[in-house]
Nucleic acid binder design. Structure first.
Lengths: 294, 294
DNA sequence: CTATTTGATTACTCATAAGCATCAATATAA
DNA sequence: TTATATTGATGCTTATGAGTAATCAAATAG
């Protein structure tokens, strides 16, 4: 064991008081204790350390070189400890710390930026890790506690996870700029029976894929799918160049300047929902604050 | 008062033990105390801080985010405190710290470098401040505690100061390279009755100046003094260019490559002594070690 | 189910920090 | 000089609270 194992913070606090005042009686008053106790605690500290901190010639108290050095160190150490306790409190209150986000790419169009802005207004000292992941990756990393919260296009979740619907979106058709169909002439999905389609890969999110296929089922035909991809930009590029049409969440049209046009499918019943998911037992206090903001 | 004023190092040590083992009973064993005391101390720490450090579900102990953070901080703080105590011990033993030297320029020729080399061998962690000062400046700054030790050419010292003779040196004549006098033809100072002399200024050190004048008194003449200066290089330059002869401590000839030659005055009784001086009540522990090396 | 293991709780003991009265040494005042 | 005041240290007592032993309640394992 180390020599300083019997030293307590009390010793340091008393030492600092005497080091400042260089006067045992006044230091004792300042500490709201009686002088003899102070004398003995300082003596005990010196004996434990094995060297004197003060030179006292019965009329004057002065710091030894070692005492002078320790005065600075002890003051800094106590201050740092105090700061650590305070920062711990912030962490406990979710006012500081780190939140690890997972999200499907489309959530970054509107939901995540808006959420982060609102959250930062109340909790400016929380930092974020943001990671674009598909639905299944997010579930895996939630269960392994790698991320604190996920934003997925799903409806059913494992029992360990809590969730909340954060955004319900219509679908939109994506067509080339020069396609004859317009919002005015569009009446029903059945008009697109002969078209080729570029859709999200089924593996990316089966529930999402099936929701899209429902649209075609309701229209009474199976689509001719030429390409499957997960990237919005890729879809738009392919549509732009005449490889086919596509169906995407309406919010996904934001932020792109490409040669495609959109027709929002407000007449069909299908909607796609973005849900926030998190572990019910996640103890990150910042997460509770985030969920409250949701 | 600060919230943490009732927290003691004991709390931190106990906390770290539990944080490491995540097990109260084993942590208690490791600390050589019984488990109930440990439980209470941790609880008390958490209550004082106002937030929990562990989440215990009657079967598992886990750190909260705040606890995880404090584990790192507390470990570092304890380590730093331990290091501070250790460094204080080094300071007390004179194994670390700082020594402020004053010295007359000539002491830097041989005495100071040799002393520092020997001292550094035993006390490599002591740092130095070196300042070239004349005798009186050194006494003043010793009395005002600005320097720890001085190296002067004096014999008498104020009562507050302790001293020790460190080097006794003969005098040497300084002559131009082409001067007719040589060590072989030199017999007595009386041969120099007609010469002009360049000497140290009396104000620089009266005892030293009078010692030099004694040499002339013994030779039976008062010298014709053309210049007075304190700088060795200035003296040598003046001698080299025929402005006169000089008398310097023999050790002062080291380290200069100039057009002058020296004749060591071994036959006269005068010697010049370099003394180390320090305050008797100087508490710098490194000083005691230095004096022991002297 | 029972046995085991976990941390928490309770009542008690004992170590010790703090307080009081006093002392010795020194400085200041008369 | 003597008297007085002020300093930190010391001896003794007290009270706080850390530590212990026994026990409990809850969860898990067999």
């Amino acid at each position: 064991m180390l020599m300083s194992n019997q030293i307590e913070l009390r010793h340091l606090r008393y030492f600092l008081a005497v080091a400042e005042t260089l006067h045992f009686r006044r230091a004792a008053e300042q500490l709201y204790i009686a002088q003899p106790g102070l004398s003995r605690q300082i003596k005990q500290l010196e004996e434990t350390l094995g060297y004197p901190l003060f030179s006292r010639n019965n009329r004057k108290v002065a710091l030894t070189p070692a005492g002078e050095y320790l005065q600075g160190e002890a003051a800094e150490i106590l201050q740092r400890l105090e700061a650590a306790f305070h920062h711990g409190k912030l962490l406990h209150e979710g006012m500081a710390g780190r939140l690890h986000f997972g999200y499907v790419g489309s959530a970054m169009q509107n939901v995540i930026p808006e959420l982060l802005l609102r959250f930062r207004a109340d909790f400016p000292n929380v930092r974020y890790d943001l990671e674009a992941l598909d639905n299944q990756q997010q579930l895996d990393r939630l269960l392994s506690r790698d991320i604190d919260i996920g934003f997925v296009r799903m409806e059913k979740f494992p029992p360990e996870l809590d969730h909340r619907r954060v955004f319900v979106d219509t679908f939109s058709l994506v067509l080339p700029q020069d396609h004859p169909l317009t919002p005015e002439t569009f009446t029903s999905m059945a008009q697109l029976k002969e078209e080729t389609f570029i859709l999200f890969a089924a593996g990316y999110s089966r529930p999402y894929f099936e929701r899209v296929m429902d649209i075609f089922d309701d229209a009474g035909f199976r689509p001719n799918i030429s390409h499957r991809t997960v990237h919005a930009t890729t879809i738009y590029r392919l549509v732009e160049n005449g490889f086919g049409l596509s169906i995407v969440p309406t919010s996904l049209q934001m932020g792109y300047q490409l040669g495609v046009k959109f027709i929002e499918l407000t007449t069909i019943p299908q909607r796609t929902t973005l849900s926030a998911v998190w572990r019910a037992d996640n103890e990150n206090p910042a997460l509770n604050n985030l969920i409250r903001v949701l």
